[in-house]
Design a protein around this nucleic acid. Structure first.
Lengths: 144, 144
DNA sequence: AATATCAATGATAATGGTAATCAAAGTCGA
DNA sequence: TCGACTTTGATTACCATTATCATTGATATT
């Protein structure tokens, strides 16, 4: 299986871009971090071992990871983009707790199927979708 | 049936807020506008007949309409909030064309039902949700 | 290995949507 | 009508994101 490091290198080469230490460090740190991290999250984490890497580079590299198909960008309405590694053949959507911020992933093939039926009925070609359920997680709803 | 003007008045009274001309004008103009309008859209529209109303007031009043249950806020990923009147017992989601910006509404009770099953499986209490399908509308996919 | 070319970096400033501030004006109960 | 309190509108502040630009770095060519 092709590593994601290789995927990034191939993408950079294809586009005539350069393989740099920063890009590889950011990729590695991104993959090691918990999912759904924001640019800030990643920047703060990187700063511990690599204080020379600038915020702008982290931001640009995250966009690059999205462009190369390694990551996807999410937005859960708190005003900052979040990124997560793409898992092949493992699409999922999210339950988001408004109280504690907990993010639970879910998969529901039947919903996906119905989505395609809806799109077909409108002669609409789906490129991507987002489906998020907001509310209270089990713990927070008991605390109320 | 209670008009939305009455709904707003009741809400304001309940909260100890004031009924003002601006708020009623903004409500009326909002309801008369095409759906899914942004703060800018509404401000520009208002300026024609009511050039004295400030941007901040439009912004604040839209938030107020959301708080009073008259409108809901949507965000389709273009970096600006959009608002639409709540239609009782008529929840819907959206198909959004990335090319021309067309927004199509859809309803799919089966999806709603499956959502609730997913939430229940995680002991999660749904307060709201968003479900958007992004891609190309019929016209734009033919033009490509 | 040295060089030339072009992209990347990092610090900083610009941008754009949203929200806070505050003096002046308006609302509404007493 | 008066007074307490809210709203308004202009402006500024905020914050995430994006652009700018001089310097540094990567890579192909010699």
């Amino acid at each position: 299986m092709k590593t994601r490091k290789k995927t990034l290198r191939d993408y950079l080469q294809l586009k005539g871009l350069k393989i740099t230490n920063q890009r590889e460090i950011i990729l590695k740190t991104f993959l090691d971090s918990r999912s759904h991290c924001s640019t800030d999250d990643l920047y703060i984490r990187l700063r511990k071992k690599h204080p020379k890497i600038g915020y702008a580079t982290v931001h640009r590299t995250l966009k690059l990871l999205v462009a190369s198909g390694i990551a996807i960008e999410q937005n859960f309405g708190d005003g900052q983009a979040r990124y997560e590694p793409v898992q092949d053949n493992h699409h999922h959507d999210h339950l988001i707790c408004r109280e504690c911020g907990l993010i639970i992933e879910f998969e529901e093939p039947q919903i996906e199927k119905l989505q395609h039926q809806v799109a077909a009925a409108h002669q609409f070609t789906i490129e991507s979708h987002r489906h998020e359920l907001y509310g209270l997680c089990s713990r927070c709803s008991h605390l109320k």
